[in-house]
Design a protein around this nucleic acid. Structure first.
Lengths: 224, 224
DNA sequence: TATATAAGTTAGACTAGCCTAACAAATAAT
DNA sequence: ATTATTTGTTAGGCTAGTCTAACTTATATA
């Protein structure tokens, strides 16, 4: 059984080694910065995690998750994102409020709880930030996730999240039919003023790049 | 902000001083036994809680919650019971599985979370064990809660929980229309063999004392 | 009421997770 | 290639929460 703190170190390691594609290792100072503790503290914990065979490193070298460590870290990410989804969908938390509470909830130990929560939410694929939720086996879909602004013209996409939580944006989005899980397509781009002609559920509208940049989508066509 | 451990001590103190009506204080050894730690450990913590003005005691004497300590303890009970209700009603946990997970969930710090959960569950009054859930102000209804076996003949009651979770009992109960929130009344008691003639939602049946002892009810008439 | 037993306290020690300060190794810059 | 800078390690110390062992006070009983 891992402690609350050990779990946080594993999660940090996954974040630092997974996010940026080129990297597979993270340094002691880098971790210390990320976790807001001192390098000496990180050093102690890394020794401990190494003894538990959750990470690999050499003296004066950087650290990487082992297969087992990675598995644990992904479990925590899964819990975090499922809780975020619960808070957002069922309790009406806003997009930017969910993270803080999920940081606590992710450490609750009960696989039954997490599996039931997953089922209750109908096995969601994305959290409210549009990040992929690993499934019960620890598999993470690697679907290309981007904003509508970055999408190719003509592709049919699915809205999985929004980046702006202001009422102004939300009301406007609602008006255009832009909602989580809606299908959206860019019909054309206006060269003159950069406006995008979009179609949501059969309804066409013109939106600004600012607006499009706040809509997170996945595109089946791009993932192929 | 209270630590996880401090919260557990307050909760234990409330349990030991509230459950048994005559008592308002709990001893060091009693607490140690309840919390499965040594008396010396309890002693240290009691000193700390006294400094924080959450409990009152005299040297070599017993301890009691202060008004403030009691308030905190009730908040934790509220969280515990709301989570139990969530696990039971929404995630399909059984009556006897909820406690363990709620022990962890009760320590999550977020008043918004708890208020939203309360709302999501439509402000429940009782948890799956039939215990009263304190409201957001810390008020606990003091409704007389007992088993059907202890109820007076002729009183209209509401079923709030069951004590037995076996499929045998549950199926039998289901057959008779016995479910959470059903109205139930004892029509008569059979002197000869102690069977109870009951009416549930207009349907009458005969049940054993064993069966009746597993049904937790509240009675408006008795509470007056 | 004197004493045996139960209840409560104190002192000293341990672990996890954190710190500072001093040091060692690796890397970058001249 | 030598030095300066960054990065990582070690040693020693702190707090919260736990322990054991020895001790003190309160209570029950003979």
């Amino acid at each position: 059984m891992l402690s609350y703190t050990e779990e946080n170190y594993l999660k940090a390691l996954l974040h630092l080694t997974y996010d940026k594609k080129g990297k597979k290792e993270a340094g002691t100072n880098e971790l210390a910065l990320f976790l807001a503790v001192k390098p000496a503290t990180v050093n102690d914990m890394l020794r401990k995690l190494k003894e538990k065979k959750l990470i690999d490193n050499e003296k004066y070298g950087k650290s990487a998750l082992t297969r087992e460590g990675r598995k644990k870290a992904i479990e925590i990410i899964r819990k975090h994102r499922l809780w975020e989804t619960f808070l957002f969908r069922k309790l009406g938390f806003s997009w930017d409020e969910v993270h803080e509470v999920a940081e606590q909830l992710e450490h609750i130990q009960s696989s039954k709880l997490i599996d039931r929560l997953d089922k209750f939410l109908e096995y969601p694929s994305f959290d409210p930030h549009g990040d992929v939720i690993p499934n019960a086996k620890g598999e993470m879909k690697t679907i290309s996730r981007k904003t509508l602004l970055e999408e190719e013209t003509g592709h049919q996409c699915t809205i999985i999240a929004v980046k702006d939580n202001s009422t102004g944006f939300l009301q406007y989005a609602d008006q255009l039919g832009v909602a989580i899980n809606s299908k959206i397509k860019i019909l054309a781009r206006q060269d003159y003023d950069d406006l995008l002609l979009i179609e949501v559920d059969g309804k066409t509208s013109s939106v600004s790049p600012k607006f499009a940049g706040n809509i997170v989508i996945v595109c089946e066509q791009c993932s192929k």
